[in-house]
Design a protein around this nucleic acid. Sequence first.
RNA 1: AGGCACGUACGUCAAUGGUAGACGGCUUCCCUUACAAGGAAGAGGUUGGGGGUUCGAGUCCCUCCGUGCCUACCA
Length: 896
Amino acid sequence: MEIPKQYDPKQAEQNHYERWEKLGFFAPEVNRDEHAPVFSIAIPPPNVTGSLHLGHALQHTMMDVLTRYKRMCGYRTLWLPGMDHAGISTQLMVTRELKKEGLTRHDLGREKFIERVWKWKKESGGQITRQMRREGASVDWSREKFTMDEDLARAVREVFVRLYEDGMIYRGNRIVNWCPNDQTVLSDLEVLKDPQPGKLYYLRYPAKNGEGGVTVATTRPETMLGDTAVAVNPNDERYRELVGSTLLLPLTGREIPVVADEFVDAEFGTGAVKVTPAHDPNDYDMGQRHDLAQIVVIDVHAKMTNEAGADFAGLDRYKARAKVVERFAELGLLEKIVDYEFSISKCERCKTVIEPLISTQWFMRMDELRDLALELMAREKKPRFVPEVPYEKVYTNWLENLRDWTISRQLWWGHQIPAWYTKDGEIIVARSEEEARAKAGTNELTQDQDVLDTWFSAALWPFSTLGWPEQTKDLETFYPTSVLITGRDIIFLWVSRMVMMGRKFMSREPFADVFINGTILDVHGQRMSKTKMNGIDPLEVFEKYGVDATRLKLASVGSTDIRWNDKQVESYRNFANKIWNAARFCLLNSEGATINPEILNTSGPELALHDRWILSRLNKTARDVREALAGYQFHEAVQTLYHFFWDDFCDWYIELTKSDVTAEESTAQRDQARVRLITVLEQALRLLHPFMPYITEDLWQRLPGAHESLLHEAYRGAAPTIMLAAYPEGKASLIDENAEWEMQAVIDLISRVRNIRSEMNIKPSEPVPVLIGSPDEKLRSMFLANAGQIRRLVRASEVSINAQLDAPRASARAVLAGSAEVAVPLAGLIDFAQERQRLGKEKEKLAAEGSKLKAQLANPQFAERAPEEKVNEVRARIADIAQRTAQLEQTVENLQ
RNA sequence: AGGCACGUACGUCAAUGGUAGACGGCUUCCCUUACAAGGAAGAGGUUGGGGGUUCGAGUCCCUCCGUGCCUACCA
């Protein structure tokens, strides 16, 4: 058989995915058992403009691990893929593209522009699906969705209409976050707060009679042109007299009142605040309280309006700022300018400084929806956050302080708001234009030009993708989904909104569990971002180390943040190579053998120790991996598998079977050993498959008898694939603690002898005799049964086992657990001083451990209060140490 | 400003209140016919400092130092 010595991931990654997909293994229909339990995941839809980054690969790996695992457990599994239309960024990308052609979207017109976006989406979206196929994601492509698909659009309109009819969606004129660059309103969550150094300007507003007046402090002097009051705290003695008086607003000649408002912090600045209701959210509120006029001095392009006065009209806001300051200086009204650090609001997408503006927009009232979500958590503790701390609290705290959501956006790309206006300005909200006409009783309607926030449609994702509002079979089967795996940055933007919408329209939470994955940082601990250019393309990592190795590293990230270092993937690449070579060994020695699952079901004294032991290890590993995955402990699962495959299977089991398996002649012993070896390997590959789909499938396909070995019964009749093989169960009945103890004794013995060889500088090629002494007859017969293995693994010329250790004086010795001793006669090789030193070191170690334990036991409180089994454990360990120390002393004496 | 996390080997990270581990790196030896992307044997830790609870603390509590993240309407 042709098997290269080195694992080549590219070769293994080549053909399997296509076959899996073509044969329909990813679709839930592959499962023939109609009573099968269901497992479903709706993918967090990636942004169609982007390409996938490591964070996506991380989440996809975790979702794929769970999906493949559950599928192998016989669940009817659906991992539903799809993409998000990402209104603002997509429109931005296409606008940029147009700009290169010297066009604006207005040149094309709405319809043509949207056509253009669809064309662009096809290309960009294709990139994402290619990447996902490369990752090995076992998503059901036949159910792929896009938030702008007609059926999802229908769900959006349905939700909008129902919420409107319930009075939960309304249109209103309020102050909002406006991005002057994107020309659209943004919700609070799409605004970044960026702390940066700035200036605080102290401006004096004279009293009406030209005397005195008040000094205010502001970071935005240009807004003074729109001031309609100055506010002070009602309890502020300094200004008590002034409340109710009138000031003369410089540069405008406008008379404005001094009002008292609790909001004002007397400690800050001068204690007096200029009030610009049209351009500041707080001032807006104050304006409402005091019935102040709203004077709009800045327009949607962040330029000064005519209202700002002839001197300023048309100026950019920052130029206007400079000019205002200059004028104040000229008038002697600029008291001072101090350095001041404050947070500035920026557009999350384009980083343009937000301009708060008064604008007519659509809003969603959140109080009722919020209560639904909070109730769900309070009563049923749903959804279950993993890790619970701190995310459950983060989630509920945010909900408690939730404010209304601005859902309209001044974009063309997105779900156009299903609201129409009659000539008289009446609002008709309907599912379609026809319905609107019928409702209005006229055909003369114009539809609202705005679209909905992308997150509006995303909030419906878990049920809109399954066919809602139709009562489809899929909806009935797969909702609620089993788990959501996502980053902590969208708990508010997305997770909470899905819960509210799911609760409102499906009466149930959209997912049972929410697993919040850790964030991948760069080597310096910085978040990866486009602007910092420190992102890593997963495809590059795949190229370098292979998909399976990368997946293993990603799966081991878990829920804590990690600093990414390519080097760390290397050890998993080495692991893949180890798997490859272990399989290579098994395959090269598999002639005459076929996988036989029967041997997995029974263990007993008729089996060799290592055979009982590996069955025990295999079942324990399966059990531990299952437990780890049940609690989303991906890291734990990876560690368990890594340790089992490399340490248990490769380092010990293969080594222990070598002598049998590599025999030239076909004997029953050889062939049975071969059957056991490849059968255990096949089980190990199954255990690894959810994490490393390519290499495991590739090797599995080569194993003799794999095609005939049992798929999970739910998949009877399906084409052979490890994907549908039953995941090892982890049977308690096959966990054999006695075999594990005995095997450990053998391993310890071998390790001690190897240690002696190494410390004594005995050449690895030099055979030495090994003498074992133990009064324990059972132990002796156990060593005897494994003497051949021991001899091979320590390169012994002979292994002799006696009740008494009868070794020449010139021997290196070691003490083992269970009152056993081992000696390696080293006539002419031994350096007595060195040997005494070596034993002395060992004695010190024992003494240190022993005195620690004795002190613990000597404490009367310990015996009294600690559980009995702990106390017994300590007693046993002390006894063991005492015995070993005594033997060591004897050994040292023999050396004198 | 508040809230929350984190600080463990040289590095990156693990450890239901019960013997502090893994991987990489490092030292020595070995190309032993599955694998040098490997094998064998080692070195390396008063778990950031201090205090407390407990029979027992990396783990729970307090405090200080350091580092991140989130939330917020101080102009």
